[in-house]
Amino acid sequence: MHLNDPAIIQFLKWLGGLLTGDLGRSYSNNMPVADLIGRRLVNTLELGLVTAIVSVPLSLALGIAAAINQGTVYDRVVSTLTVGFISVPEFLIATAAQLIFAVYLKWLPALSLAADINSIGDLLRIYTMPVITLILVNSAQMIRMTRAAVIETLHTPYVEMALLKGASRGRMVFRHAVPNTLGPIFNAIALSLSYLLGGVIIVESIFNYPGIAKLMVDAVATRDLPLIQSCAMIFCIGYLVLVTVADIVAILSNPRLR
């Protein structure tokens, strides 16, 4: 412990430890940071993964459908709802979900306690609310960006050319427009999943979900620097991985860059 050193020295020492695989020790309970993080990181990844698996296909489908039916009632409903969801803070959606499912309907518990999982039913009950909240927040962003990207491509001369070749609307969209929107769409996905990182922070602390974000928020309350630094680093790495994957996909989908 170097609690008496200036902050910058402490940070440098922590960085030095990082190189040898040592994340340091928590100030508040003197446990190795790596031990504190381990299981909780897995919990958070599970949460993120489940959200991504549901929200990515869902938003692509809804976004593309809105683009094809631009200007129809369906499009307007989707657009209005998504504006609503991206305009309110995550915690409002989370509290609204709690209010509806836990308070009024009493279907689900207000808090997630991963400790006592005994059946698939328990599992569902624990994950459902955090996942629903994250999906709502996340999909709204992705649907908007997907819709914008597809609409832009639908106005290009090569899609008009496909129409003049006699292609059906479906063919114009899926054979001509969508392949050219893969780059922007994957960018949208990466961006949305990085918002997911922010959403996770709120959702975990509202539902008391034992993940790494909750750990970090608690660490901030106690000013436990080694723990905060390690958690922050993990989040940044997660973001960089997402952005890099999106860039690679964009390059692969464009013959000019390949």
Binding site: Y158, G166, H176, N180
Partner: peptide, 24 residues
């Protein structure tokens, strides 16, 4: 109409560079 387009009536655009899909 779609059945006629590209089949009995075909179109050659002003800018072929823009009318070809860049990804295919």
């Amino acid at each position: 109409r779609a059945r006629l387009r590209g089949n009995e009536i075909a179109y050659i655009p002003q800018s072929a560079a823009a009318a070809f899909n860049p990804a295919k």
